[in-house]
Amino acid sequence: MSDVPRLPSKEPEEAELLHGRLTLEMHRGEHSDCVSRRNFFAKLCIALSGVCAVILGVPLVGFIAAPLFRKVQQGWVTVGRTGDFEIGKTVNVKFTDSSPLPWAGITAKSAAWLRRVSETEFIAFSVNCTHLGCPVRWLADAELFMCPCHGGVYYKDGTVAAGPPPLPLVRYPVRVENGEVQLKTEAIPITTTLS
């Protein structure tokens, strides 16, 4: 504003008017030097805002999205000794996730349906319905898994018997080591039928 030339005038009011008009004209972009200077400042401010946004945004997005890239070590967990399981019976076994966060508390626990098929063979199913992940229950006499949410039903081999589930129940790897039955913990099975 101080760079605006003050032109001589007989009347102070007229001078003020002229001064104002000149300032207005400069604001309207009729003074090329000033325009380039203002353009520069405008672009500088926008660029600096972008720099600030990047400084704040990159760690923000990285922090929030970190779970997507965190490698969780899945491992074998013992769910009992072979003698604990009767041949032909399907039982609910509980275990703790292999690498829970220290403050996970009881949310680190998980479950599976385990069946001893023979002396040496075990099979284990995820408790998550493949429809929308609700916990399926085992009806021993009917030899069916049933889901309480939307009525999905599975046969004892995990194949779909009725209802909306698009896929059979997911199986966990099972092994017997030194008389212990071990499951390999896995991520919650996410059904991705459209991909």
């Binding site: 999205a65 779970p67 997507l68 965190r70 969780v72 899945q74 996730d97 829970p100 966060l101 220290p102 403050w103 996970a104 508390g105 949310t107 680190a108 998980s110 896995e186 991520a187 919650i188 996410i190 059904t191 991705t192 039928t193 459209l194 991909s195």
Partner: peptide
């Protein structure tokens, strides 16, 4: 998870990892 291509990523984003846990 039903969203094509990025479904599994979205599911993990919601869960805060592979399973329900401390981050959820």
């Amino acid at each position: 998870g039903r969203v094509p291509v990025i479904g599994t990523w979205l599911a993990r984003f919601i869960l805060g990892g592979d399973t329900i846990g401390g981050a959820t």
